[in-house]
Design a protein around this nucleic acid. Structure first.
Length: 591
DNA sequence: GCCGTTTTCGGCCCGACTGTTTTCAGTCG
């Protein structure tokens, strides 16, 4: 092996998410150091910008490093650091900072109530540089000697350290579907109070982010005199474990499942402004408020105010946007990806539930589903669909009672029979299968059997032992047979367990484009792994996107809602969605 | 460190809650 190859192997090509994380860490270290706050913000902006990027930084650097400067939030300094990270696999500035900042200090920042100033103080005055040492110091009552740390601070720290450890075990974020269930329950509970006029949830859940950090709920009352009553009632919700803080307008609790919930109470004339404010994203709001400022206006959670501090908008979100000269936009778009003032300020017309004509991934009792072919079809008709595809597991997934050739052939006949029955209702069931790409390098069935199917969904099932390069290779091999119509969960990973590698996704998408394979946005609550950025990557390549429920019961069909919203976050339009096609158009695409 | 329809310097979003203060800094979202 030549030296060149050895070096390439050692230097692991830096991925977008890793680079974003390095900039976040740099920002944390600069905060502890007490650096200029705007410099710190620049690093955080750059990190956020990189996270939402639909292309790899590696591909930009390879093409032309100067194009890095076109990315919002990235200038000369950070651009150079990205180039160094991509080509050399390291960042000198980052390494220098690391030398002067003990790693444990960064962990300590994760403890609620401890910010950079206090961490720096504890480190300087008491030499504490890890969560473990901090825990011991609190136990030994050593912290109370420090300025600003009285008895109450220590008491709070003990709790905060315990919470930190628990939250770390759950990686700090929760699945969208779980968060949705919890928030609806709390909203039901709060609406029983007659003082509550309006109630809705905001935050990343309203933006339908794939994972949720905490819940934000907003309530409006006729008079702020009622707010205390609302807060008292809220903290008595039976899921509440701890009350973190409680005031007239803002209360924060931690639920028994360690989820944090913020409740805000505002007057009715401010409800829209508060919804806008707390829906975010933070980056979207910063740009929005800057735009307002340029027009001599001020935006906060109570409304839009003119130079004389008169409120000119605030009751509804629409009027808040309008007052600043922006058309209201759906929360999924509010990520500062150019939706406010970018070159493409013309917003896309996004896919909607009403556009969906069918669902191309579901299971029946033949493998691990709970309902029959007919039951699934009837439920789909109730949703107004024209067609579905039955795609039971192949024999590769033994635990799911996957079908071998013989059982698949019988399954096909069964589907034919149901199709015959539903003919007069003009409903069509496509004969399909979900094959597993990683199993043995084949597509689980021979070519003759696969050609009897209308549609083949190829899935990459979780395999934590397989190297990313090997996964890419197997996917490429499978797609190049020309027998696959849809590629499902190409990362093979479940959310929160491991992030997919951007380079892997880029190669897979290029391959899918070459063989005209659609990418699936999977709505199964445990998955949702084709993320917003992946949808953008797919659309950039002209790929069709299949938004599927992957339901294992008739009750699971409406879960497609989650996939639709994730696709909307990725600016997916109706034209890109495979299952927005009519049944005739779909068959035309398949052949 | 980034940015520009007040442009190459001088800005950079806004407010609630807490604890320990004696009027506010730190943290958080």
């Amino acid at each position: 092996m030549s030296t060149k190859f050895i070096i390439y192997d050692i230097i692991h090509a830096m991925e977008n998410l890793e680079i974003a994380e390095i900039f976040e860490t740099i920002a944390d270290m600069l905060e502890i150091k007490g650096e200029n706050v705007f410099k710190i913000r620049s690093y955080r902006n750059a990190a956020a910008s990189i996270e939402g990027l639909p292309v790899t930084l590696k591909s930009i650097v390879e093409k032309n490093p100067k194009e890095l400067l076109d990315i919002p939030g990235i200038g000369k300094g950070i651009g150079e650091k990205i180039e160094e990270l991509v080509t050399k696999g390291k960042c000198t500035y980052f390494n220098e900072l690391k030398k002067e900042t003990p790693a444990g200090l960064l962990d300590m920042l994760g403890i609620s109530g401890l910010g950079p100033k206090k961490v720096a103080l504890i480190y300087k005055e008491a030499g504490i540089d890890s969560v473990a040492k901090l825990e011991k110091a609190v136990d030994d009552k050593k912290l109370s000697k420090l300025p600003g740390f009285a008895a109450k601070s220590e008491e709070k720290l003990i709790k905060a350290i315990a919470d930190y450890k628990k939250l770390k075990a759950t990686a700090g974020r929760f699945r969208l579907s779980m968060a949705k269930g919890v928030v609806e329950d709390i909203k039901d509970y709060l609406s029983e109070l007659k003082e509550v006029k309006n109630i809705d949830h905001a935050g990343s859940l309203r933006r339908w982010k794939e994972t949720i950090g905490d819940l934000d709920i907003l309530v409006s009352c006729k008079s702020m005199n009622d707010s205390e009553k609302v807060m008292d009632y809220f903290v008595n919700y039976n899921g509440v474990k701890d009350i973190s803080l409680k005031g007239d307008t803002k209360t924060t609790v931690v639920l028994k499942n360690n989820m944090q919930v913020d409740l805000r109470v505002v007057e009715e004339k401010s409800f829209g402004a508060a919804m806008q404010y707390f829906t975010g994203s933070k980056e979207h709001n910063v740009v929005f408020r800057e735009m307002a400022k340029k027009k001599g206006l001020k935006v906060n959670e109570y409304g839009v105010f003119d130079s004389k501090d008169n409120q000119i908008a605030g009751k509804t979100e629409e009027e808040v946007y309008k007052a600043v000269g922006v058309k209201w936009m759906t929360p999924e778009l509010r990520e500062n990806r150019g939706e406010l003032n970018g070159k493409n300020a013309k917003l896309p017309s996004l896919i909607e539930m009403a556009h969906i004509k069918g669902d191309l991934h579901m299971h029946t009792t033949a493998s691990d589903g709970a309902n029959t072919i007919m039951e699934m079809a009837e439920s789909a008709m109730k949703l107004g669909y024209e067609y579905i595809a039955i795609t039971d597991h192949s024999k590769a997934v033994g635990v799911a009672h996957g079908l071998d050739e013989k059982r698949l052939l019988k399954h096909i006949k069964d589907i034919d029979a149901v199709n015959e029955e539903l003919k007069k209702k003009k409903f069509r069931i496509l004969k399909g299968a979900e094959v597993d790409i990683l199993s043995d390098g084949s597509l689980d069935y021979d070519k003759k059997t696969l050609e009897k199917l209308d549609i083949v969904v190829a899935a990459v099932h979780s395999n934590f032992n397989m190297k990313e390069e090997d996964m890419t290779e197997r996917i490429t091999k499978a797609l190049s047979t020309g027998l696959v119509n849809i590629l499902a969960h190409p990362t093979g990973r479940l959310i929160n367990q491991r992030e997919p590698y951007a380079v892997h996704m880029e190669k897979v998408m290029d391959c899918a484009a070459k063989y005209n394979v659609a990418m699936e946005v999977n709505s199964y609550p445990e998955r949702l792994d084709l993320k917003d950025t992946h949808c953008m990557m797919a659309q950039d390549r002209g790929l069709k996107i299949s938004i599927a429920s992957d339901s294992h019961s008739k009750a699971g069909l409406p879960n497609i809602e989650y996939g639709i919203h994730v696709a909307r976050r990725g600016w997916v339009t109706k034209d890109s969605v495979l299952n927005a096609l009519s049944v005739d158009e779909l068959f035309k695409w398949l052949t």
